[in-house]
C-alpha cells in the first residue's frame, strides 16, 4: 500500500491505511447467488411452459425427421409405377404381392395405399411434405436475411433514406403477390423445361418463381417490423455510448441493434412460414408448382379429385398432412409471440 501524504487537512482524500483487503469469505458474498437469465433464455422458458406450442414444436420436429430420413430407407420410390396395384386402399396388397407373401416373402405394406398409377402413396405424401417444409424453410431464410438488412439500414439512417426505402416497401406491399408468382411461373415455364440443370428441372417453374417472388416481395413485412424496432432502439443510451466511442454503423447495427430485435424477427419469421407453405400448395394445386413426377401436397390433392368418391383417402392423406403442418406452425408462431413479446410480459 502506497503511503500518500495528505495535501490538505480539510481534503476528502481517503487514507488507504484505513482499508484492509477483503477476505475470500467476504468476496464470496458479493457473487450473485442466481445466474443471470438472458432475455432469450427467459422467453424459451416461457415457451416451454406453453403446452400447445410445445406439442406443435414436437409435431414439426417429428414431421421434419420423417420427411428427411424416411425416403432414404423406404422400400418404394415416388416414381415406381406398377399397374397391378392401382388405387389400393391402405394396408391392402395386390394379387401379385399377395402371391409373394404366400410364398413367404416379406412385402412392406402400403401404409397409405397406392394411387391411380400404382405408386406407393405414403412415400409420395412424404416427398410432398418435404417440398412444403423446404418452401417454408427457404422462405423464412430469405425473409430473415433481406428483411433484417433492409429494415435495419432504413431504420438506422432514418431521414430521407428511410423515407425513400419505406415508400418502396409501401409499393411492394401493395403488389398482389400470388398473381405475380403465377405470372412469373408462366413466363419462365419455357425456360425451365429446356434447362439442362437437374435441380432446376426437378423443382419446376412454379417453385423457382416462388423463390424469386419470396426474394422480391415477401420480406417487406419483416423489413417494416425490424425498422420499427430499430427506430426505438436507436434512441437508447447504449447506442449513443457506442457511437460516441466511435463504433461504425455496421458494428452498432450488428452488435447492438439486431440482438435486440430478435423477438420481432423470430415472431415474424414463424408466422411467415405457413403463408409460404399455403402459397406453394395453392400453386401446385393449379398445376403450376413442382414438375411431375415430383409430388407436392397440393398436386396430390388436385390429382385426388379425379376419383373423389371411390378413393377419398387419396385426398384425405395430403389434406390432413398440410393441415397439420400449417396448424402446428400457426400455433407455434402464436406461442412464440406470447413468449417473446415484451408488451405481454407479466
Amino acid at each position: 500500500m502506497i503511503d500518500m501524504p495528505k495535501k490538505n487537512v480539510l481534503s476528502f482524500q481517503l487514507d488507504p491505511k484505513l482499508f484492509e483487503p477483503a477476505t475470500d469469505e467476504e468476496k464470496a458474498q458479493q457473487v450473485n447467488l442466481r445466474p443471470s437469465v438472458s432475455f432469450f433464455k427467459d422467453a424459451m422458458k416461457r415457451l416451454s411452459k406453453n403446452r400447445i406450442a410445445m406439442i406443435c414444436l414436437c409435431l414439426i420436429v417429428i414431421i421434419s425427421l420423417i420427411a428427411a430420413i424416411v425416403p432414404s430407407v423406404y422400400p418404394y420410390t415416388y416414381t415406381e409405377q406398377d399397374v397391378t396395384r392401382k388405387n389400393m386402399e391402405p394396408f391392402k396388397y395386390s394379387a401379385k404381392e399377395q402371391a409373394k407373401i404366400d410364398k413367404g416373402e416379406k412385402i412392406f405394406p402400403h401404409i397409405m395405399g397406392t394411387d391411380s398409377l400404382g405408386r406407393d402413396y405414403a412415400i409420395r405424401v412424404i416427398y410432398g411434405t418435404r417440398i412444403s417444409l423446404l418452401v417454408g424453410l427457404v422462405a423464412s431464410v430469405i425473409v430473415v436475411i433481406i428483411g433484417i438488412l433492409y429494415g435495419s439500414i432504413s431504420g438506422y439512417f432514418g431521414g430521407r433514406v428511410d423515407l425513400i426505402m419505406m415508400r418502396i416497401v409501401d409499393i411492394i406491399y401493395s403488389l398482389p403477390d400470388v398473381l405475380i408468382i403465377i405470372l412469373l411461373s408462366v413466363a419462365i415455364r419455357d425456360f425451365v423445361s429446356t434447362s439442362t440443370n437437374q435441380l432446376i428441372l426437378k423443382l419446376g417453374s412454379g417453385m423457382i418463381s416462388i423463390f424469386i417472388v419470396f426474394g422480391l416481395l415477401y420480406w417487406v413485412g419483416m423489413a417494416r417490423q425490424v425498422r420499427g424496432q430499430i427506430l426505438s432502439i436507436k434512441e437508447q443510451e447504449y447506442v449513443l455510448y457506442a457511437r460516441s466511442c466511435g463504433a461504425s454503423p455496421s458494428r452498432i447495427i450488428r452488435k447492438h441493434m439486431i440482438p435486440n430485435c430478435v423477438s420481432v424477427i423470430i415472431i415474424t419469421a414463424a408466422l411467415q412460414i405457413p403463408s409460404a407453405i399455403f402459397t406453394e400448395s395453392f400453386l401446385s394445386f393449379l398445376g403450376l408448382g413442382v414438375s411431375i413426377p415430383m409430388p407436392s401436397l397440393g398436386s396430390l390433392a388436385s390429382e385426388a379429385r379425379q376419383a373423389l368418391v371411390s378413393y377419398p383417402f387419396l385426398l384425405v392423406f395430403p389434406a390432413v398432412t398440410i393441415f397439420l403442418i400449417v396448424l402446428s406452425f400457426n400455433l407455434l408462431g402464436n406461442g412464440l409471440r406470447d413468449a417473446f413479446d415484451p408488451k405481454l410480459r407479466s
Binding site: P274, F278, S281, F282, F285, G298, A301, S302, A304, R305, L308, V309, P312, L315, A319, I322, F323, V326, L327, N330, L331
Partner: peptide, 23 residues
C-alpha cells in the same frame, strides 16, 4: 377458427364437395 385458418382453400372446397355434394 384456429382449425379453419389452417385449411387451404382448395382442401376446404374439395372436402365440402366430397361431403355435401357427393356423399
Amino acid at each position: 377458427t384456429t382449425a379453419l385458418v389452417s385449411l387451404p382453400s382448395f382442401v376446404m372446397a374439395t372436402l365440402l364437395l366430397l361431403i355435401f355434394g357427393l356423399k
